[in-house]
Design a protein around this nucleic acid. Structure first.
Lengths: 334, 334
DNA sequence: TAGATTGCTTAAAACGTTTTACCAACTACC
DNA sequence: GGTAGTTGGTAAAACGTTTTAAGCAATCTA
């Protein structure tokens, strides 16, 4: 069964295609179509269940009402929760989302941008990887709105929304120090994005400000794409060879692996060994004892991302470089 | 900067649009285009970075290489993990995914189907809600492939992939009984989908087969869209008013709420009170003590879903009603 | 009364592809 | 030397919209 076209409606209503199009697009008044015709056509549209073909529409108008969302991995709860919020808000404004996981792989990311480009998405929301600066700048040069979130790229001048990672990390370490911790470890990843380096810098600065020497043996950088067993092995080595009394995990999945290790080696989190995780997770509240975590304000991030995107979509001007830094919150659980 | 069109390439290569199109679509041989021309055109395409406009292509061919994925909620880890796997596999076959969360809301689901329809998606993958049978049947009548997963709809005759919920539930209860449990509760939701009712039936049948009387006070149906505080209150009431010695949670988020309650009322999971969760979650392995769970084989589900979709896409025939039931696995942790 | 304005409507071009149908020039065959 | 087949290619229609420019009456203005 072929679906109806505007032509069928026009024939049925005995008016021209143009007239129907004007009515559909709410330009009836402006083009001074008579009430009688408007009503007749609207009735027919309603009765027939006609829906305009978005593809034809896109081809003609050049925009698709689709926003491309590129994240690292949709199965990571941080991203899936953000994605859900963004989807919700975009939907309310009539935009749909096409999403894809980049797996932090530059080639895949580039390919995705091409994909999105050929689908003529109206705007991009990207949690970027290093190495796609040029591709993004190309988009910006074409006047396509691009908003970055979670990680900023210094060489890309556009809107960005992210949490204050430096400060949150600093605070976490400071809270350890105030508890009297001396040998504080950091388990982080080797991906070279601002968001991650900031966490390291916060760690270093806090130590420095409290006159604790930085010891590189206490910082473990886990390779991004390796499997969990290997990650756990590395963390285990840290725990067993260094006499640490506190650890900050720079991502929630690292924290989960770390907690598994602790369980395995039967080391308890408590007064003499404390843990903070970056990015909260349901598991942390349920853990015994409960695990402290840095919470990013997901709702606020999503809200701002969409705000920036919509504002760029409405202006036709080049994207302005507007960085929105929202505070992250350290939740101390005990 | 306007992007290149096939016309620009044709002009540059001094051939017709048709020729370029044939080459792009790999029909050069078949249409007996000379090697020389093929090379020339391909070189120009490569150099210029030309990418065909998918929208125009879709308009002309009637298919979009997009698969619509409708799930309950992308921020639920079960769905986000499945989504990731499906995305991956679809991507490898050249298909992109547009996804949307239905929130188990019939109206939203219907609206989404319309949305997808007007975007001419090539196929649908749906974790359906009750009430959209007719809309789906409409799609099937138009010969559009639709594959259901996670929940089946009896009134829809099409491909379906899901786990054997009845059996997994039965097994879980049986394992309680073998431990000597007598008062076994079930915390489930009130959404009326096969997948959920099967879990209840498994519960009932296991009790019956082991001559334990069914007590409706031990079954709590939590309203789907309510907030967590209320859910926890209901579960708390169950725990405090009924003298139960085991509980099966029918979804992972219910189990998480339930575990929070246990923590709150300081009741320990252990020999005299056991818990099994349906759908595994990282939190369960980390919990002290570790929580047993029913694991659905995500990879296998995703694999089969994609297999069915692709098979439907290749045949032009009406969807065949093929139900693939994969076993779920009870992971006993202690 | 001529010209301008207003009210309602439409024909046709354009968006960037794919595909059908066709053409022209050779080659091969009997 | 006529016809059938092959090789290498193209013109133009079609997909379903939006939008520009214009047309025609009827009414108003001076």
């Amino acid at each position: 069964m072929k679906s109806l076209s505007i032509k069928d409606i026009a024939t049925k209503a005995n008016v021209s295609i143009t007239t129907v199009s004007f009515i559909i697009n709410g330009k009836a008044k402006e083009k001074s179509i008579s009430e009688a015709v408007i009503e007749k056509v609207e009735k027919i549209i309603k009765e027939s269940g006609y829906k305009p073909n978005q593809i034809a529409r896109s081809l003609r108008t050049g925009n698709s009402n689709i926003i491309g969302l590129m994240i690292e991995d949709i199965s990571n709860s941080f991203f899936s929760r953000i994605a859900r919020l963004i989807e919700d808000k975009a939907y309310k404004k009539g935009y749909k989302i096409i999403y894809s996981s980049t797996e932090n792989n530059v080639d895949k990311a580039k390919e995705l941008i091409n994909m999105f480009k050929s689908r003529k998405v109206d705007a991009y929301i990207i949690a970027p990887t290093k190495g796609i600066e040029e591709d993004i700048n190309q988009l910006l040069a074409d006047n396509t709105p691009v908003i970055l979130f979670d990680r900023n790229l210094p060489d890309v001048k556009t809107g960005y929304v992210g949490a204050d990672h430096f400060h949150a990390s600093y605070q976490s370490i400071e809270s350890f120090i105030k508890q009297g911790k001396k040998k504080i470890a950091l388990v982080t990843t080797d991906i070279n994005v601002q968001q991650i380096t900031e966490r390291l810098e916060g760690y270093q600065k806090a130590l420095e400000d409290h006159k604790i020497a930085y010891d590189e043996n206490l910082v473990v950088k886990i390779h991004f794409n390796q499997d969990e067993a290997e990650t756990m092995a590395q963390i285990k080595t840290l725990f067993q060879t260094q006499n640490i009394d506190a650890v900050l995990f720079a991502t929630n999945y690292l924290a989960i692996s770390g907690l598994k290790v602790l369980k395995e080696i039967d080391r308890k989190v408590g007064d003499d060994f404390d843990v903070i995780a970056y990015d909260d997770h349901e598991a942390f509240e349920l853990h015994t004892p409960r695990i402290s975590a840095v919470q990013q304000p997901l709702e606020e991030i999503a809200e701002n991302v969409i705000k920036l995107v919509l504002s760029q979509l409405s202006k036709k001007t080049k994207a302005e470089q507007l960085e929105i830094i929202v505070p992250a919150k350290l939740i101390i659980r005990s």
